[in-house]
Nucleic acid binder design. Structure first.
Lengths: 338, 338
DNA sequence: CTGTTAGCGCTTTCAA
DNA sequence: TTGAAAGCGCTAACAG
């Protein structure tokens, strides 16, 4: 924060204005002048004071990102993808990780807006309450908001300046079902998140519909209470006792799949000979877990979200984006025995 | 970005200055006035324009963080801890994830300084070259820089305004060695990162010294080329063939431990009966990997780093901080057989 | 206790 | 093609 436009201007015998324009490559400055200015700026190590720039121009080249937990694979993936895309585009990113404290999200959003953020990206906490608070803070300011993975409460696309980006669970379900179908499976169980969450309910529906349209059977137990390893383990223990025993399980996350695999192995059954398991997400657990897991790897939500904003910014429509995946076969699925 | 101090002032019949001071809780404004101002600000949804504020006051309440890969556990842990600490302190954080492209770090640092960042935190890439570039960009501006985990090149503490925060591998080694010693082990092998990296060399030395001071034997193969699962697997295969066969292995990371465990099990030996393994880091792989691993869990580097800056800011000394750990016993160690 | 003056570094607007 | 004037929203420094 030391060399100013004024310093450059004095050194070059030009006006501040000329230098400012030259550095921004304005059309009304001579080519030779631009070159001189650029060289001087480089030599003296000039870089612009963004605070002053955005105070005057109302353009900050800054966006805000809110992630509840960067330690989670979901959060890390989103943040990583977004940051990379932003760097390429020359946009700065402020990141906030609001704690449990109520109102934390709103406070962070305000801080970001105070710094001139041109958009807010958020991966909401799973509770609806938090989502609404965050949304309120953002839309109140008229800023575009882009949600990752989970729906904002009560918003119809196109109305408020709200967009969202999600994994295409429908497509993922197709991949998983196709894979199982080719192996001869005619029945499948889905273990996903609690259906009270709208997106989870849709995931379940995607699997059900996909199964039905192929003439596959989708077990009625296909639903559960959580997306953690323990949830997968517990629910799998339950369904292993039923008749007919499941032969193929699709899990809403790799963590669930990890738990499911654990329960299956503990019961004395073999993977994939007795039970086939597919996870969705393709995270660390699928690769390095106790049991390598066939899984669907998705593209980066962060990158897609940033792309959506860039499109909107240039006049595009604010409409949802779905990020597709591809099947990674790690051998946790096999042809049916009978 | 809409309600200004001026709007509040007009609404209240006060001067802009009075409102500004009241909101910042200046000592020379009446209690009653402050209350009125605060109520009005709340009611009209005022929040300050930070660009204007930092342009004038030279204090931005902003710091920058550079992490090469947020997807890594290391990066996620640092960023997560820092963000949380920053939120508590009311400080904003700009995060950059510079790609491989040369000069990316320097560009990001400039962008952060342009926005008035008061300090730069960085987790450098492992190559020395990158580190120097980043350092140059930071110190050139006279900003305090705080490095995580790896040493900045050629800097003596106290001279430049450079600090660092690292895991206390010495203490971790003590914990691991104590644990093994109590189980009866009298010899140990260490598998860590390439000793060309100064910090890795120090880690190795910490284990060697700790072993020696207890009268334990430290195998000469204690060193290797990398910190990934594959490295652990490869090196372990090598040493399993030697005589006497290793009975206890301390690994520089959980990833290495995961690979080591894989190699041990593949050779037909049992964990922990035949070989005890301890990882350092206590990440996902230790918890959910194919073999639960006893490991040392460290405190958050991000939190410690932020704490260091806060201390400096208030006039404290810029000196290195070490973050200690605690042993998490997951059953991958046992008493020696003989 | 409150208000006035001046100006942070930049860009918008308009005139030369 | 270049420059002068004005001001973005806020606060440091001082005066009342």
């Amino acid at each position: 924060m030391r060399v100013r436009l004024r310093d450059l201007a004095e050194g070059l015998g030009l006006s501040v204005m000329a230098v400012s324009k030259a550095l921004r490559d304005a059309p009304d400055i001579g080519k030779a002048t631009k070159e001189r200015v650029r060289a001087e700026a480089e030599k003296r190590g000039y870089w612009p004071n963004q605070a002053a720039r955005s105070l005057r121009s109302k353009q900050s080249g800054l966006v805000g990102l809110l992630v509840p937990d960067l330690g989670s694979e979901e959060g890390a993936d989103i943040a990583g993808g977004l940051l990379q895309a932003a760097e390429t585009a020359g946009i700065s990113v402020m990141v906030g990780s609001p704690g449990e404290k109520k109102g934390g999200e709103a406070a962070q959003v305000k801080a970001m807006m105070g710094r001139g953020a041109e958009a807010i990206f958020l991966l909401p906490r799973i509770t609806t309450e938090h989502r609404s608070l965050a949304l309120e803070a953002v839309t109140q300011a008229g800023l575009p908001a882009i949600f990752f993975q989970r729906y904002p409460a009560d918003v119809t696309p196109g109305k408020a300046r709200v967009g969202w980006v999600m994994r295409d669970m429908g497509q993922a379900a197709q991949l998983a079902l196709d894979h199982l179908w080719k192996l001869g499976h005619r029945s499948v169980t889905y273990l996903g998140g609690h259906p009270a969450e709208r997106s989870h309910a849709e995931h379940l529906r995607a699997v059900r519909d996909g199964a039905r349209s192929r003439g596959m059977d989708c077990a009625p137990e296909s639903a559960m209470a959580g997306l953690h390893p323990e949830d997968g383990e517990r629910e799998t223990q339950k369904i292993l006792g039923k008749k007919p025993a499941p032969t193929a399980i699709i899990c809403g996350s790799d963590a669930v799949a990890w738990g499911a695999a654990r329960a299956v192995l503990a019961s004395g059954l073999k993977i994939p000979q007795d039970v086939s398991i597919i996870g969705l997400g393709d995270g660390q657990l699928a690769k390095y877990g106790s049991q390598p897991l066939t899984s669907v790897r998705f593209g980066s939500l962060g990158k897609a979200g940033f792309g959506l904003w860039m499109a909107i910014r240039e006049g595009g429509e604010m409409r949802p984006r779905l990020v597709g995946g591809e099947l990674m076969d790690r051998g946790s699925t096999a042809a049916t025995q009978g």
